[in-house]
């Protein structure tokens, strides 16, 4: 297992957002966490990557518990993610957005060396730029590298987040509702990108509303309802699970 959660529990005030969720995700696969609105999917993501400190239970990545680790430490361990509500840097250009991710493992360009702009800084920067351009090209935004990210359309901002996350060279890519608000063309392009990422050997975990997309993409599906895990397994199996059908039919979605 690449990522595991054991009895992961998350309480906000009196509200139980996640209850005893125990899950594991295999390396090299595309896995999905699904569920009706308010099922705790995004909370699950946030607890996995250090945005929230779990109330109880733990998250284990590559056999190492993540408890007490800050998001940037978790990022360094090899987890990257995107955000349902988008956390792009609107005033930075596309290439700068991606470079921030790409420069994660560059420890030599510190404050002082950068202020003096030593030759090493300039050459590192060029490398980072080339890499960033590569990821922008891959998601089809290469020709807009110098645009401010805030000027992009919504769907393009989502894709930019993926490029940015990939630039950190992760082992696990977590996508929070990547297809939300996309046109059907954009959606198909997105699926191609995700498959391509999987083919490069990167594990993908996504939270998604769009059942069609999940069923077409995912190798493994876990279903949450009111913070509890109600089913897990291959998509075909989960699809016919009576609990899952009930959870989805109980709500007009």
């Amino acid at each position: 297992m690449l990522l595991q959660t054991q009895n992961l529990t998350m309480k906000f005030g009196g509200i139980m957002a996640l209850k005893d969720v125990t899950l594991g995700f295999q390396p090299g696969q595309i896995s999905a966490v699904i569920g009706p609105n308010g099922a705790g999917k995004t909370t699950f993501f946030n607890a996995c990557c250090g945005v929230y400190a779990p109330t109880a239970g733990q998250v284990i990545f590559k056999q190492t518990p993540l408890n007490g680790k800050a998001p940037h430490q978790i990022a360094h361990m090899g987890i990257a993610r995107t955000w349902q509500n988008l956390q792009i840097f609107p005033q930075l250009t596309l290439i700068e957005n991606v470079m921030v991710g790409g420069e994660m493992r560059d420890h030599s360009s510190g404050f002082v060396t950068s202020m003096l702009r030593l030759p090493s800084v300039a050459s590192k920067e060029n490398v980072a730029k080339v890499k960033a351009k590569h990821w922008l090209d891959l998601v089809g935004l290469g020709d807009r590298a110098e645009t401010q990210a805030g000027n992009l359309a919504f769907g393009q901002q989502r894709v930019l987040e993926i490029a940015r996350a990939m630039a950190t060279s992760p082992q696990l890519l977590m996508l929070d509702e990547p297809a939300a608000g996309l046109s059907s063309n954009e959606r198909d392009a997105l699926m191609a990108v995700i498959r391509r990422i999987r083919d490069e050997g990167i594990t993908v975990l996504l939270v998604e509303h769009d059942m069609r997309l999940v069923m077409q993409l995912a190798d493994y599906v876990a279903v949450l309802n009111y913070g509890e895990l109600i089913a897990k397994g291959p998509p075909s199996e989960v699809q016919s699970n009576p609990d899952v059908i009930k959870a989805y039919l109980g709500e007009d979605e």
Binding site: M10, N46, V51, Y52, A53, A70, P71
Partner: peptide, 9 residues
């Protein structure tokens, strides 16, 4: 504090 939000989102 246990279980609190670390970052204001």
């Amino acid at each position: 504090g246990l279980g609190g939000k670390r970052f204001g989102l």
